[in-house]
């Protein structure tokens, strides 16, 4: 039995690329035979006995020269250039180990940070449990993940809360050109940073955080369905804090009314002295536009 391509880059596909030539989206399950039509078996498939089968649950995508399955679930598979959120799981003399939701922990070396650190002093900067924004730099054949904290918008995260969704759902969370995350920000006034690994940092009023969390859960559970944007918008409108009768208010107006004040009050507490100011997480727009290249 021969495998198709290794699954390194499976999450490449944009939402719509997972469609059949006919335009119809087809869900396939492991073990189901898929029509190859002479195409090469790509990620998420395997070939045996001259036939091609799906190896993961996902959407069928036939784009010459490959027939592949775009997974709808599963752990985050790192890709160089991705901005991801991680939590520190271990501190060593010269590096930290980060859990970024990938199959392996990612070492963050002290030279990959904006701080000037002496060997053995790593512990003064990041502790186990701290949350950081980093960028995936490289991957080696054994699955080792290299990450860096050097770059705009990268650094330690202070305050706020982190919501987990499936990494496969991130394109939906971001939306076309950042439309979905933009809408959520507009309606809640929350600060949002989206990591490609399915971890999303949210800060704002407790109410804003609660609503954003509920919306993200909704997207996570219905990420492959159509009509999601409408559903999210109607949820956001129906949970407007100021007017319980709010559902019928136009979004722009209400956002204008409560947006500004709810975004300020909980500017994250300043971090310990060694932290640079620019470590402050960049806004969602930043991430949103990053995404759009991939969308």
């Amino acid at each position: 039995m021969s495998r198709g391509h290794r699954p390194g880059h499976r999450r490449r596909g944009r939402e719509d690329s997972s469609s059949h030539p006919s335009g119809e989206r087809i869900l396939v399950l492991p073990g189901e035979e898929i029509p190859a039509h002479g195409l090469k078996p790509g990620p998420g498939t395997y070939r045996t006995g001259g036939k091609v089968y799906a190896s993961v649950l996902g959407l069928l995508s036939s784009r010459p020269p490959l027939v592949q399955v775009i997974p709808l679930s599963g752990r985050y598979i790192p890709k160089p250039g991705d901005v991801v959120l991680g939590t520190v799981t271990d501190v060593q003399g010269t590096f930290w180990l980060l859990d970024i939701g990938a199959p392996r922990w990612a070492p963050l070396h002290m030279t990959g940070t904006p701080w000037k650190i002496d060997v053995g002093e790593t512990e003064r900067y990041l502790h186990v449990g701290d949350a950081v924004t980093v960028q995936v730099e490289n991957l080696d054949a054994t699955g080792r993940i290299g990450v860096t904290m050097l770059g705009e918008g990268l650094g330690k995260l202070e305050g706020g809360t982190i919501v987990h969704v499936s990494a496969a759902r991130i394109p939906r969370v971001v939306g076309r050109g950042g439309s979905m995350v933009g809408m959520i920000t507009r309606h809640t006034g929350a600060q949002i940073v989206v990591g490609q690994n399915g971890r999303i940092w949210v800060n704002g009023t407790p109410e804003a955080i609660r609503r954003v969390t509920a919306v993200l859960r909704l997207i996570d559970e219905n990420g492959q369905r159509s009509g999601l944007t409408d559903r999210v918008e109607s949820y956001l409108l129906s949970t407007m804090p100021t007017g319980p009768s709010g559902p019928r208010e136009p979004p722009m107006e209400s956002a204008g009314r409560e947006g500004p004040e709810s975004s300020e009050p909980s500017a994250p507490p300043r971090s310990p002295p060694m932290l640079d100011d620019e470590v402050e997480p960049e806004s969602d727009e930043e991430n949103g536009t990053d995404e759009s290249g991939d969308l």
């Binding site: 989206r25 869900l27 649950l57 709808l72 492959q224 159509s226 009509g227 999601l228 409408d230 109607s234």
Partner: peptide, 19 residues
């Protein structure tokens, strides 16, 4: 088993999208 997974990963339109 397949039916259970298809229900979980339904790709049709969402219920109540316009409610």
């Amino acid at each position: 088993m397949k039916q259970a997974l298809r229900e979980r990963y339904a790709i049709g339109p969402m219920a109540g999208a316009s409610s």
